[in-house]
Design a protein around this nucleic acid. Structure first.
Lengths: 177, 177
DNA sequence: ACCATAATATATAGCCCCGATATATCGTAT
DNA sequence: ATACGATATATCGGGGCTATATATTATGGT
């Protein structure tokens, strides 16, 4: 799925600047299952404007860069609807954490323990974020949030109950280090 | 994490060709939590050979392209060990499925139902793959497999128990279509 | 009171990587 | 007989992430 589609989707929830769209992917309602960055969002908005799928209203601000507020056009909404009907790619899960654990036998046990501790900490943080509904979440956002909560809960449970399996494989600490 | 690191890791499990490394990411033990494709693997192996981190032994085959068997060098193993000690990026979960469901109200109910059915089918297929241990899995692979199983189980459970929430939001079917 | 950092806001260059495609042959299924 | 899938390497094009540049205000620490 292209970033242009993601931007069209973001604008369904209201007019926004590129900066605000980026925030939606970084902290906001999309952050748990989507990715996009400035380097792709700004060019995407330019392309979308050229194609008439969004409009751009520049708001002059004193002593700050112009704020460019983008809005979805009818054409853009149709384009989004069309894109949403296309075949959907499989969910993708990427974990450098699991990759690293494949080589637990090459790593000192303290390092593996630290890795698991840190992973659990960040996951629990995300869990507590996902626990509280946003102030004006749509039903779709709510569904995605609860889905995320269920999955992260399962991850935390598994890690807590099975971390000993992988920690046992790691290289025992050397006494003289 | 760069593809070069992934290739070094793949070669820990034994000598392999680029083709075989690709398979590890496509079907094999890495497929549940990692990604890499020909377009990155072959150039990566070339770079690694130039840097002396792997060696390449070309095996002439009649009427087929030479089979290039790559092996990890001691230097390559150290490099991997070093890379594994670096800070690990957060796990990344990307789902076009959840993105699409954010706009369930723009989609016909039949389409949403089909999407959920298909998602459940592919996830259950993956679950059954993850259920059976490989013939010569390392403990790390086993851990990753069980981790995957736990997470996919939670996903399936959530979807089955909550699909009605999102299906209710979708646009009711129009009688005349 | 002063300094550093974060937040607001847009933009681009460089590099990496995915997807598609090209080439060539063999085994198997239809 | 032929089409397809598996084996095997390789590259091009385009898309996108990371890092950086620029400019100002608000916030927080010391």
């Amino acid at each position: 799925m292209q970033v242009t589609t993601l931007c069209l989707g973001a604008l369904v929830f209201g007019d926004a600047t590129g900066y605000e769209i980026n925030k939606m992917f970084e902290d906001g309602p999309f952050s748990h299952f989507l990715d996009a960055s400035y380097g792709s969002i700004y060019p995407a908005l330019t392309r979308l404007t050229e194609e008439g799928l969004v409009t751009c209203k520049a708001e002059a601000q004193e002593k700050r860069p112009d704020k460019k507020i983008y809005s979805l056009t009818d054409k853009g909404c149709l384009k989004l609807r069309d894109a949403l009907q296309q075949p959907i790619a499989d969910d993708k899960y990427r974990s450098e954490f699991l990759f690293t654990l494949l080589f637990a036998h090459l790593l000192p046990r303290s390092r593996v323990r630290l890795m698991v501790d840190q992973r659990l900490a960040t996951m629990k943080e995300k869990l507590s974020e996902l626990a509280k509904p946003g102030t004006n979440d749509t039903p779709g956002m709510d569904f995605a949030r609860q889905y995320g909560y269920a999955v992260y809960s399962a991850s935390v449970d598994f890690l807590e109950n099975n971390r000993h399996l992988i920690e046992e494989i790691a290289t025992e600490e050397e006494a003289h280090v």
